[in-house]
Nucleic acid binder design. Structure first.
Lengths: 242, 242
DNA sequence: CCTCTCCACTTGTTTATACAAGTTCTGTAT
DNA sequence: ATACAGAACTTGTATAAACAAGTGGAGAGG
């Protein structure tokens, strides 16, 4: 249910591109045409366009028009850097069957070393969760999630089995807004080999991240260790003028 | 020289945060206060704020105010995902001495297999460049760049030794706007071991990307192979409502 | 003491308008 | 035919205004 006026315009343009009404290289109708078509102001059209620009669909050109530069990807990448998606959401998008196995679920108190790593304050009560994610039968991600209990009360292993984000958003009414992540590659540990189907690989792609809710509270620290050939991160960057 | 009015506001807020005038968790003065202080409209302030939000400095909260969530990083990451930076720019930002060695510089014609990999059309004339990037004495990145000659005429090994982007932007007057990248980890090849100081690592962090100029032409295809412990990608993601 | 309502404040969305600045094409003059 | 000027478009920046919607505190009433 769209309560905003720019959202239908955003989706209309996006689906016109994905359904190849406008191909890569084509120019869209002008902003004024869209404004007339959707009976809105030019600003509202520009807002929809700027979202699609940030996503790499469009390239506005001063004086010329707005060009489509979107090309569908041949190989799909499971994750999009720059977006915040749960594993379930990403798996659905790539149309593969996803399951989760809980390895650890316990409550801990934040000590000095955990605080240094995660950024939580010493003494805070935390959920410590380890999960292994499967695509089909292959174990592809070994996830360690640490949640601030005061912000995520009532989390259980059953919920972690399903979708933690759905619980936080739908049941607790939390809004997830911002996430800071770091991507690197590391040597696989014994535990990685034990839990993941690494095959002949002896390294993993790791992502560590901090997630904030709409109150500005960092409520989650996550470390994900990925099987390299099953996971890839994609993103679109826009060069800043400032 | 700022020709735009939102740019000074953007920098003022950013430096106030980086100089710890406002710390993580603090709320900024309201948009109306900034509008009065900079003698501009609220929209102009909001534009500066939205840029800093996308960069992970700020978290606007409906009805409450704009909160600072920026924390300086302990370990610096060389690259920021989501930005388009040259190696020289990134090295300067992390205050390490960067040098470049040209391994290959030749002109080639795009054949079927190159076209499939890069997205250039068969028959196009291309520059094929291989470079090794050093931080201090250590070889940390093995770069393969393929440029469309028609868009980057006059490129030489000497320029590639220095900064290709500076040549494109300053001399050719090109504007680099959008880039699409994919990050993954791969087993190191013999050539990787030969060119990079991999130490005990036998895998690399790879980034492949396509870069567009302001005319919507894809003029560059790049593949970078990074020594894992020297390179890390950082980014800030904002969860979308739409 | 607790609760509820309301006010004053915040950010979020949208409109309308004006002008700046870049591009492309047309038409005129050479 | 060519060159140049200008018109007619395009997107980019900024303003002012109005209202929607969320937050938090003050104050009234129980």
């Amino acid at each position: 249910m769209p309560q905003s006026k720019y959202e239908p315009i955003y989706h209309a343009i996006k689906s016109d591109i994905e359904n190849k009404k406008y191909k890569s290289g084509d120019f869209l109708p002008s902003e004024n045409e869209y404004a007339a078509r959707f009976d809105c102001s030019r600003n509202t059209v520009r807002r929809a366009i700027s979202l699609l620009t940030a996503e790499g669909y469009l390239l506005p050109q001063h004086g010329r028009g707005v060009q489509v530069i979107y090309r569908p990807e041949k190989e799909r990448s499971l994750f999009t850097i720059g977006g915040i998606e749960s594993f379930a959401e990403a798996a659905t998008r790539s149309s593969r069957k996803a399951t989760t196995k809980i390895v650890t679920f316990e409550e801990i108190k934040c000590d000095q070393s955990i605080s240094l790593m995660t950024g939580f304050d010493v003494g805070e009560d935390l959920y410590y969760i380890e999960r292994v994610r499967y695509l089909g039968k292959q174990a592809v991600i070994y996830d360690t999630n640490i949640f601030l209990i005061s912000e995520t009360k009532g989390l259980t292993a059953e919920i972690a089995q399903d979708s933690i984000y759905r619980y936080l958003e739908d049941t607790l009414g939390m809004t997830i807004t911002t996430s800071r992540r770091r991507v690197t590659a590391e040597r696989a540990t014994e535990r990685d080999h034990e839990l993941l189907d690494l095959g002949h690989f002896d390294f993993v792609l790791t992502v560590v991240g901090q997630v904030f809710n709409s109150r500005g509270v960092m409520f989650e620290y996550t470390r994900s260790r990925h099987v390299p050939d099953q996971v890839c991160f994609a993103e679109t960057a826009v060069r800043q003028k400032v």
